[in-house]
Design a protein around this nucleic acid. Structure first.
Length: 486
RNA sequence: GGCCCCAUCGUCUAGCGGUCUAGGACAUCACCCUCUCAAGGUGGAGGCACGGGUUCGAACCCCGUUGGGGCUGCCA
């Protein structure tokens, strides 16, 4: 495994080591699709290069983090198949590391304590012509840890921080524009830029692939890496995912939870395939790829620079393709839980067998698994319920419905064998007899027997429903029609 | 406001100075197939934000404009 690399140049690191990447989410809400894509890109690189993928939970903000979100992240990653080689490490269990680093920085005068409140700073810096942000007020006050203040990093000015981003190329920041940012809160809790960097050094991270929103943090990270004397990883900032209004996907505003998509019946490989294509595309311009193919072809240097809209329509299409490619066995296994959650489902071997034999007809008609129950419902639901307006429009409002149903009933009773072929022959014959297209003939029949206007092919459906139930439903419909006309 | 990033069909993208009268995919429209609905097939409409350069030649390079986004927290 050591040193084994795929075909792209991304496996090379500045140092003569092998790749170590990390995914470092903060457990402050449902795990969302943007995070999933970032995690996947990291994972693809690690797998391609034979490197290590580390999962690190950035939970230093006790106020905002909840343990259940950690589980949510791990579950979602597992579902997607994004496996981690190390971790999950929790920053909340590594606090002494950050405290040591902070002390070191303070002792070496790379950082200083500051007791200014936000209001005090604002009062000094807000106004026309003044630069907002911290003004360095306590920089030379020589306050100590006992001051009860926050620890601020002493940004070296003048100076500039430049680096070559794996996605964007060279980026330059003037240190002049960076305020002395806080490393440790006055309550002793480390902040992102400290804990993040300390861990990246401690864990030997060689490549940091994260969302573009972190780009402005990077010069700060750089300075902390340098102050701490740690090896600086290569950075790559991938564009954010946006909603239809082109704003960064937000947990509060947008529907983004991976868990939701899983529940709805999206398949993990479809999700990964779609996610990978948001910002990246393979050399040969193919869209459908297995995870293995993506591992082989992914190249961080080839990721686009502009934000992408997370288009559920296209995701749906991808999912439909993946579903249609499922084996009958897999499709049955994936579908069963969705059917089992319905009140009309009775879990018997016979029903399972019927379900299994009817499922191939459903497979090509759906894009997500949660659509399965509605398609097979007519086969199992007893008594049958009608979708809104179906009884009224298709049965009661159709002047020919009664006559058609009467004749169909007779036809069924006269069948030598209750089979698909005989059913078809009989109905086609009736359509000739009535001088109406088969689709017109089957409309009231479908409504009467399935309670729906559209659905799986009718002949097969009637066979699955069974002769007795079919006749009974036709009788019910005939009665309903008679009732409405009396 | 300041700093940074970005800019090819509605959307995701291919394109990395001539092969572009710009290719593919989703969505959309039409037609075909068809027992409904899908799926599938064929075809159509639809784009290089704008203005300057550089060059024999620019979607591709440079500058500006405009537009969008991110950050600007004792969040990450």
């Amino acid at each position: 495994m050591v040193g084994q690399c795929g075909p792209t140049s991304q496996c090379q690191s500045d140092r003569n080591e092998f790749m170590r990447v990390r995914f470092a989410p903060s457990p402050t809400g449902y795990f969302h699709v943007g995070g999933a894509r970032t995690a996947f890109y990291n994972w693809l690189m690690a797998r391609q290069c034979g490197g290590s993928f580390v999962l690190r939970i950035e939970d230093t903000d006790a106020e905002r983090n909840r343990e259940e979100w950690v589980d949510g992240i791990c579950d979602a990653l597992s579902w997607l198949g994004i496996t981690w080689d190390e971790g999950p490490f929790r920053q909340s269990e590594r606090l002494s590391l950050y405290a040591n680093a902070a002390e070191d920085l303070f002792n070496r005068q790379k950082a200083y304590y500051c007791t200014c409140t936000r209001d005090e700073i604002d009062a000094r810096t807000t106004g026309i012509g003044r630069k907002p942000g911290y003004d360095g007020h306590c920089r030379d006050s020589n306050l100590g840890p006992s001051s009860g203040g926050a620890l601020r990093f002493k940004v070296p000015t003048p100076g500039e921080t430049r680096f070559v981003d794996l996605v964007r190329g060279e980026v330059v920041f003037d240190n002049q524009n960076l305020e002395d940012f806080i490393l440790v809160k006055s309550n002793g809790a480390p902040l992102f830029v400290l804990a993040n960097v300390v861990d990246d050094i401690d864990m030997g991270i060689t490549h940091v692939i994260r969302a573009e929103e972190h780009l402005p943090n990077t010069p700060k990270s750089y300075m902390v890496f340098e102050a701490l004397g740690g090896a600086i990883p290569q950075f790559g900032h991938v564009p954010v995912l946006v909603n239809e209004k082109r704003q960064k996907l937000s947990k509060r505003r947008d529907r983004v939870a991976v868990e939701d998509y899983r529940k709805q019946g999206f398949l993990a490989p479809a999700m990964l395939n779609y996610l990978a294509l948001l910002g990246w595309s393979p050399k040969d311009d193919r869209e459908f790829m297995t995870v293995e193919e993506m591992i082989l072809q992914f190249d961080i240097n080839n990721v686009g620079h502009s934000p992408s809209f997370f288009d559920e329509k296209k995701l749906l299409h991808f999912n439909g393709v993946y579903i249609r490619n499922l084996s009958e066995e897999d499709f049955f296994n994936y579908s069963l839980p969705y059917v089992q959650s319905m009140s009309w489902w009775i879990d018997t071997d016979l029903n399972r067998a019927t379900l299994k034999s009817s499922l191939p007809l459903a497979k090509e008609r759906i894009a997500i698994l949660s659509e399965v129950p509605e398609l097979v419902r007519p086969i199992f639901e007893e008594p049958l319920s009608f979708l809104p307006n179906v009884r009224e429009n298709e049965l009661l409002a159709n002047p020919m419905a009664d006559e058609i149903l009467q004749r169909v009933k007779l036809g069924i009773l006269g069948l030598g064998k209750y089979s698909h072929d005989e059913m078809e022959e009989m109905l086609r014959g009736l359509s000739v007899e009535f001088s109406i297209p088969l689709r017109k003939l089957q409309a009231p029949l479908r409504a009467a027997t399935t309670g729906a206007k559209v659905g799986m092919p009718l002949f097969e459906t009637l066979i699955h429903i069974g002769k007795e139930k079919t006749i009974a439903r036709i009788d019910d419909a005939i009665r309903a029609i008679a009732l409405s006309r009396s």
